[in-house]
Design a protein around this nucleic acid. Sequence first.
DNA 1: AACTACCGTTAGTGTCACAAACGTTAGTCA
DNA 2: TGACTAACGTTTGTGACACTAACGGTAGTT
Lengths: 154, 154
Amino acid sequence: MTDDDPMAGQPTPAALRALPSRTLSLVAMQADRMVSEGLARLDARKWHYAALVALREGGPVSQAELSRRTGIYRSDLVAVINELAERGHVERSPDPADRRRNVVRLTGKGREHLARLQEVVVSLQDELLAPLTPAEREQFSDFLTRVHEHHARR
Amino acid sequence: MTDDDPMAGQPTPAALRALPSRTLSLVAMQADRMVSEGLARLDARKWHYAALVALREGGPVSQAELSRRTGIYRSDLVAVINELAERGHVERSPDPADRRRNVVRLTGKGREHLARLQEVVVSLQDELLAPLTPAEREQFSDFLTRVHEHHARR
DNA sequence: AACTACCGTTAGTGTCACAAACGTTAGTCA
DNA sequence: TGACTAACGTTTGTGACACTAACGGTAGTT
């Protein structure tokens, strides 16, 4: 074994003119990694969190509706719901009122689980934004939201 | 053909508490898509652009060095250089001074191509940050850079 | 001469956003 | 009633990406 180099050092030095789009995706990668690792420690993934939150805020819904609320494609949602159901965090049952639909609902266990996840995720936001002052964090979030909404047109 | 729904409408409604990490990755996705589409129109991909810029700023270098400067893994860089060489934007030749290395250099054609790419990419930055004032854009970039550098520790 | 370390390259991993199609079920309207 | 359209959950597949591991070759150091 001689070649081990895990690409040491930071992956992105000066060379490229720091385009916002580039820095942005770099930072997003860092954030994604932090969150994913944090959730993985609790045997969860990003989509689990997103789905659970959406269920808590919106009550029991069909999978299609859940898909719209979370932005998870309905094809991918299948696996997410499977995993959450396996762990007993969610229940999937046919909707008697519309037999095309499944109703997905949060279980008590799921609610507790979500509380733990949320704790982790929220504290990771702090870690992520550590170099910014509270006022700056607010501004930063505001910028992000405005940019996002601007391009989420239609 | 009856089921066609490309997930119409924006992918992310209110339901989830707008965590910065989430909005961030959403916006990064939008930005990535914009840039990728813009470059695709010129038969290029993100990595092509990154490599070309690094070559222009840093002169002819080995692939390993290019990998370090761009953050492209040296395993993936092989294909990028292949593609750029096919198109005549770059030349790859063995380094007589160190026979482990290849020297990669920008061609005249590559330089012209890069100029066109840059035009597109730069104007897309404007489009991306459209909802922000010039002062806000500066701040936004500053925030991103600070956060990025903070987590690119070591 | 032995050892370590770097080089370019190939191959493969897992994840992600996304598309396409299928069988099923509902709603609408002739 | 029957034909048509559309929404549902699901399966399967794709292309891009970040990343790992290992290879044979070469260089530098001891």
